[in-house]
Design a protein around this nucleic acid. Structure first.
Length: 235
RNA sequence: GGAGUACACGUGU
């Protein structure tokens, strides 16, 4: 039972889409899970085009998919030029019986933001009935990737007023913005806050941001110092 | 049995 989808998933996560596809192609019976396992594989291996093409095939086979499928397709739309496809999914979601949950919400926000449609991203955010940390991170990311420091910090405050704690991803977004904008003091401050006040352990992405920020600001000794004091060896 | 939100650098468009 369920060997096929598991096998497809394992191959896909390993980066062997050829093997994943071979398993999928040999199946006599396909359900939404096997379809979405292989579609996810293509998305995660940066082949959004193939993911979208398989999705079309799936529809032609009469398989409808579910929320998971929709999230995958929205993801594929984020990494390709297929904005219309994403908007279509969005329209179907609003029209249909599918509830726009937090997973769909963050995928929609990300899809719009990836294509520079920040107003649409914001409208999705406003329309959500439930917002978890992933949804907040998605809207914060839409600000940080467009270097909108003010708005990012505004959302950062808002999420906490709604009793949601920022997580490591939230701080990756903020630090990345600081790094892009050359905001050394702000970035350093955020990092200290993250560790001291929020009790979040730095991951390699945080180090990337802060070391880059120090280096670009001319603090090479300090950058090297941070590098040497990481809990693991630089590779 | 399948899903969302995340970093830097370099090269090219």
């Amino acid at each position: 039972r369920y060997v096929a989808s598991t096998l497809i998933d394992v191959y896909a996560k390993h980066g062997s889409m050829t093997d994943a596809r071979a398993v999928f192609d040999k199946l006599s019976e396909r359900d939404k899970v096997t379809w979405s396992a292989v579609i996810t594989g293509y998305v995660q291996n940066q082949n959004g085009q193939e993911a979208l093409s398989l999705f079309q095939q799936m529809l032609r086979f009469g398989e409808q998919g579910d929320n998971v499928t929709s999230v995958n397709i929205l993801n594929a739309c984020s990494t390709t030029a297929a904005v219309e496809q994403g908007q279509l999914i969005h329209a179907c979601l609003v029209d249909g019986e599918f509830q726009v949950d937090t997973f769909l919400g963050s995928a929609l926000i990300d899809m719009y933001a990836s294509h520079g449609k920040l107003e649409d991203a914001r409208r999705v955010f406003e329309s959500l009935l439930e917002r978890d940390v992933g949804v907040w991170n998605a809207i914060i990311e839409s600000c940080t990737t467009s270097n909108n420091h003010r708005l990012a910090m505004y959302y950062f405050e808002c999420m906490q007023m709604e009793n949601l704690m920022p997580d490591d991803i939230t701080f990756v977004c903020l630090l990345s913005m600081c790094s892009h904008m050359g905001l050394l003091e702000e970035g350093w401050h955020q990092l200290k806050l993250m560790i001291g006040q929020y009790g979040i352990l730095p991951i390699v992405e945080h180090y990337n941001c802060i070391i880059d920020l120090l280096g670009r600001s001319g603090f090479l000794t300090e950058a090297d110092n941070v590098l040497q004091n990481m809990p693991w060896q630089p590779t």
